[in-house]
Structure formats: structure tokens, C-alpha cells
Design a protein around this nucleic acid. Sequence first.
DNA 1: GTTGGCAAGA
Length: 937
Amino acid sequence: MPGQALFWHIESKRILLPDECKRIRWISAGRMHSVVLTLTGEGKCRIFCIGTNTHGQCGSDPVATSPFVTHDKHNVLRSVAMPVDTEFLKVHACLDTTFALTSDGHLYAWGLGTDGQLGNGNNQMQWMPSLVGGDLADERIVHIGGSTDTLLAVSDKGDLFIWGQNEYGQLSAISEEPQVFYPMHVPFKVGKVIDAQATGSSCYCVAILKAEVFTWGCEHSVVLTLTGEGKCRIFCIGTNTHGQCGSDPVATSPFVTHDKHHVLRSVAMPVDTEFVKVHACLDTTFALTSDGHLYAWGLGTDGQLGNGNNQMQWMPSLVGGDLADERIVHIGGSTDTLLAVSDKGDLFIWGQNEYGQLSAISEEPQVFYPTHVPFKVGKVIDAQATGSSCIVCNSEGEVFTWGCEVLGFGPMVTKLERPMQLDPPLFASAAHESHRVKKVYAGGCAMGAVTDDGHMFSWGANRHGMLALSHRNHQHFPYQKRLGTPPLARIIRYFGHTMTPSKHEPEYVVVARSADEEAERIELPTNSEDNNTLGLQTLNALVFLNDIIPNFFRIDTSGTKFYPPSDGWADKVFVVLSQYQQPPESATKNAVKKSDQNAKRRKLMVESDDESLCNSCDSDAIDPMDGRKGVTNEATRNAAKRQQGASKQKRMMGKELVSQSADGTNEQQDGDTSNRIVDLLIMGLPFELTEDQLRVHFESFGKVVHCEIKTQRGHLSNRGFGFIQMGDLESQKRHHIIGDRECQVKIPFSKNALSSKIFVGRLRDGITPIELKKHFMEEAQKIDPDSSVTDVYIPRPFRSFAFVTFSTPVVAKELIKMGQVELKDSTVSISSAHSTRPQEAVHSALHHPSPFTPPHPANLPSDESYSSSDIYSTYGPTKWEYEEMAAASKRLTAPTSGIQQNRSAGPMFTGPIHQQLHQQPFNAYSASTSRCWQSNA
DNA sequence: GTTGGCAAGA
């Protein structure tokens, strides 16, 4: 930004930065002066001060020049003459002293030094910047704080240094003198300090004791802090509707956990002792003391509070049951099932038991007191739980799981009542490497493990791609994640937020390999989230066996999925004609002739042939177990080998049967463009991708007429999007993974395109996005059976309106024409959603925080920091999906069971048919391979 | 009673 963008008004004068200063890096304000760190176009650092210079705090001689003039006759500021020409990261101003921190960790100071603020051993004023000495000499300083005359610095190691004024004894840990003239290391046991500040009479710092110090639940977070005196303070932020933030949700607003100055209020703990860990599950919060006592507050409907009842409780209380005489060292559990571990390595569980994850101790759906489980799993060191399963690791580095859904034993094992050990070689990233696991993770429906040599593995239901595996399939075995991108913190975050969304039970379509009655049969799950449609990605043609009804199947507009018959899929058997089984051309033609002359059906067959072609080109979509791989990366190959070696089970893996390719185009397409060849907008491209690589990718789907990647004006770097024009319509409608990124292929905005979004007014409070989606899905289908709701947005705080977007503008148009619809016993109004985008731009320019605002040190990016936006990242669910998941997680439906495991099986009929179709998955696991641990009980 | 985040040629 140009220097002129930043100015001060002093005595009606407009003070400017020199033209060469193009960017602002940091600003800080003292009592009567300010300091700004800028970067020139060449990346040089320049520091400017403005304001009162009576003590030299603006970096010029107050005797030689006017004490107020820090700018020239053109009102352009003069930069402070720094003794080194290096990179500066930060500037800081306290009352009358100024500091600048270099990128190599040296601190410079100038201005008032009467209380030793300059840290140079004396109490003189000094207008020329000088190096701050004392214990900082051999340290790499990363932070400077202090608003008055007491200063704190933090080194890259997290050590804390203090100096300056000590009139109130705030530095009494190091000195009894009223001033400390050199920075001194303070050996407070506060862990790794990441931020430190001081008032006129007190100091505080935020320290990281352990990574677990900050955890988050469904709608709230909890942080454990230490004061300068080493006192523990626990703060919660977020929704307090169930008292999970530790204040009375009735007496106070359920959302306000801070005072009018936006300062958080600490949770009133019943004991003033040292806390070592805080933990949040969905709507309940826990704090663990150093002497092994666990406290809980928040939602207790499933017995999460472990106090014997099912009440909500905002005041922290001691967790009881079998924990009473134990010294607890760990608390885990991401949803409503909790696990605690004692110092002896004993395991205790309580809370929700709807999926039998606690069936070793109880048959009830809830367990209200922590109960010791006598599993023979060795000395437990870490324990976590998803919404339906548990995972522990022991001191030998062995991992055990039990419960429901994906447990890491392949698609066949979806229910275990007792812990079963995962094969250790699954956790070895190479033959010679360690396979000892030291830490396990669990979210709503996925798990993870980290070995003692730092390798990370994950597995579970891959909802919304939350496992960041470059594909959307469930991961049935531990799969090694290459760390770096995305960083560890982010992956952990996925685990923390992977809620199981509610879903209607899918139907199962019985499909036979041939019309022969003896032929093997398989059940295919329908997409319950999409009207029980059956995806066609892996099917070449479907022939209805029992009866032939013309136009029996309706196919969606993209030609990729079947709508269910009017009386559902049940009680019918279908035959699949696979291209691997029969000569494709004649067989397909015969099938068409014999069974159905319908033109739409023929079109489908042509398209589905094409679909299989697409699949075989899409390297990421290919099963790593399958020989036909394209560019499968090494990690995938290793994992494939590992999985092959680790399990003798025959299994069918591969892509989801349910089609996703319909997502490739979105609501922005209008009726015309969807059937015309147009330029396609490709978003989400890897930044390093070249046009040639993009062309090669799209050429595998057909002729490429035009290919272009957009770059910054005057730069070579790719802006992450480009345009493609394909030679034919069919290859235009694809779902693409380029590099390791899932890219969105869209038809660009057309100026005269109709809007697919409506404004819904007069909504009653309490309506959820899920309810809105469901209702408008029904409304949409009355208008166009092929249409659907693609987005629902309810602005928060609730203002009685929402926005609903449909897959086609026709639905929006018709609903707007209707003007209103009945929704849950009330009438809601419908009107067009007028875009406010131009105003939005103005609004944001006026009201958004200035881009100059320096980030809070605690928010600076680092491997261990995370922002709340991480959970909405490319890899994870969108905000709306997240909200939906969070809401849904409160009424978890029965986990997938039985045949649904086939959802992730496929491609169809290229491998053995599932042998155990009609058996319960638990039975499918043979006793001979079972290493199921039995309870002593 | 009109929007979050995403980010969008020529």
C-alpha cells in the first residue's frame, strides 16, 4: 500500500510516510508517541516515530531539534536511524520508551530510561537506539511487551525476561530494588511462554504447558493459562447454553463469557490448585489438577459429568465414581463418551453408550459414573473416543480399538465389544522404523495415531474429506499421513471436529452379477443424503430384473445417478452388466434391445461407459490396491503394501459408489450453458501448476481447445485458477483432482444468469439449517424433481431470515412467484435474494480492521498455533457443513452397520464379491483371526 | 427483512 495511505493529523497537519514505504509491518503506541515499522518496495525495514520526543522516544535529539518535530518541512516523517541495517520484526512503545526487535532476535531501545527501561544498565535518557543487554545477550528474542515502565521479553525457547520498574514488586522474583536496569531471566515454572504483557503494577503471561492446554468442543473452547505468579486460570469462550463455559446460562447471556471490555472471565474453580490439563468434548468441559482430580461442567445428559446424574451443570464439580481414589493423568473423548487414565495406567470410561462402546461394563445407553474397565490392554498412556468407538495406546506403543464403525481393521469389522489390537506393522512407515505409538486421536468418526518417531496415521469415516486423503473414501486401515502439509495442528483439529452427521438410513439395492439365480449378489447403499439415489460411477448399465416398466428409472440431469423407483429399491433385484464381464459393445446393445428401448436409458449407457473411462484416467480416484494405478504417489503405494501385508482379509476397496461428479457444476449454470461448450473456470489449482500440466490433465478427458492459468499482473506466480475449454460436452462435466488438490470446475458467471438463491423471511427462531434444507428440498422437488438445495445460510445472530440456494434457478423463480410457503406451522415469506456484493466491498473497506493492524503475538502463525478458520479449511467441512454436523452430532443416529460398509467398496465386480453380505459384520470377523481381548469380568 | 466464505479472464 502506498505510504500516503497512512497518516496522522497533528495540529491539523497531515503527516506522511515517505513514498518508498510501501507496507506497514507493525504499529505500537506509547503515552505520547507512536512507532511504526514499514517496509520499502525493496523490502528494507524503516522505523518511524511520531509524537512527543521530549525523552528521545522518537529517536531524534530532543535538544538539537524541536521536541515535537519528527518530520521534515514537507510533513514527511524522518526514519529513526537504527544502528544496524537488518530486518526488524516488531516495534513496541511503552510510556516513553521505544523498542525494535530484529528478525535475528536482538532488541533495541531508545527514549526514557529512568527506571531502567532501556535495559542497558543505566537510568539515562537516550535518543539513539542501543542494544538491550543483560540476559538477553545470548538469546533470540521473539516478543517484547509491557505497557508502562516494566518490560517483558520472551525468547524463542519460551523463556521470560523482565526489567524496568519494580515499585510494586512485580519483579520481586529477581530483585528487591525499585528498578531493574538489565533484563533478567525469571525462572517461573510457567511452561513455554508465548505472550507476556505488563500493566503499571502487574505482569501476566500466556504460557503453553502442553499441547493440550487449548482444546475445543462443539461450540466452545477452553484454555488453561498461568499468571505471572504461576496461578492457574481457566477461561472458556463460545456457547454457554449448557453451562459448558462455566457460567450460569440462565442468569447471563448464554454467549457472553467476557465482560464489557471483552476480557474473558475465568471459570470459578472450586479449588485453587495447579491444573495441568483442560479438555472439551461436545458441550462439556473438564479440568485436571496436578494431583489427579478431574472436574467437569456443562452438559451432562449422557452422564458426561460423571457425577451420577444427567443434569446440566455450569459450576465445576468433581468427577466421581471409580476416579475417587485414583490419580488421574489423562482425560479424553471427543463427543459424549469419556475416558480417563490413572497414573497406574488404568482405564476408566463413562458417558454415552449408545453404540455399545461401554458394553463391557454396562448395557445401559448411558453410564453416569466413571467405571474402571479391566481390559487387558497393558498400561494405558493415551485414550480417546469418537462418537461410537474408543481407542487407547499403552506403554508398549500398542494400539487397541473397539466400538462401532470404522475401527481400523478393514471394512469387515465394524463392531467390537472389547479392545482388539491393531497390528503393529500398520504403524511402521518403513521396515526398520519404530512402530510404537505414543499418542492417539479421535474425532466424531475418525481416529489417528502418532508414533514415537513422529509419523502420523489416520483412519475412519472420511466425511467431507476430513481426513485430507485426497479422496473421499472411508479409510479402513491406518494410513500414514505425510506431515508438513497440512501441518500437524491442522490434522489434529480435524480429529477434534469430526462429528458424525445425522443421516437417514440408506436403502440397499440388491444387484446380481448375472440374471442367473445362483449368481452372487451384493447390496449397494444408496446415497441417503441425496434422496436415496444410486450413483452410477461404477455401473455400466442396470437392468431391472423382476419387472420391466418403461421409464422406470429416472436419471438426474448429469446422467450420473438413478432416482429410486416410486416404491423404493426394496424387494427388487437388479443385474449389473460389467464391461469386465462381457464384451461391452454387443452386450450393452443387447441389454438395451432386450430390456428397454428408452432413449434416456441409452443415453445413460453411453454416459456411464464414458464415466468408467473417466475413472480410469483419474489417478487419485483409483484404488491403491488396484493394479491400474496412474500416478499413485509413494505414500499411497506404501500404504497399499502395508495394508496388504497386514491383513489377509479379502476386501473390496475403492471409490464411493455414490456419485460425486454431479457436484462438478453448480447452481451458477443456467439452462443454456449446461448444454453448451463453454470456458470452464477451474478453481483451487495448486499454485505451482503450469499450463502445460493443466492441459495434460484435461487432455485425458478429451480434446482441449483452450487452456489458461491466470497469473498476477506483472508476476509469474499462478493465482490458483484458470480456464479450460473442452472440445466436447461430455468431457466438460467432470470432478477433478489435480496434483493433490480437489479442484472445482465451474461454469463461470453469466451476467444474465438467473439467481438460484432466495431470501426467506419471517423465520421463527430456533430453525436449523437442516430443517430449512429438508423443507426446501421438498418444495424444490415439487417444482423440479431433479433439483436440490445446494446451500442454506442463516445469518447469526438470528434476524428472522435466511438464504436458500437451489441447484437450478427455475426453482428459485417459482418459489419467489409463490411469495410464501408453510414451514413448521408458520408462513415464511420468499423473495429474491438481491446481491449486496458491491455494498459489501464498501462496507468492508470502512469497517473491517485496518490491514495495518499487527497480529496479536499469540496469533502469529507457528506450527503449534491454529486459528478458528482452520476448521473450515479446504480439507475439512465447510462452515455450513460443520454447523450441520455439530447440530447433527447432538442426535447421533445409529452408526452404519451391516451392509453399508459396501459404500466404500468397489469398483464393482473387479474383485471378489463380498462373501458375507447378509451377516452381521461382527460375525464376519472370523474367530481364528480374532485377538479380541476378553474382560476379566 | 438482504449474506459467510469462497474468490471469479478478456
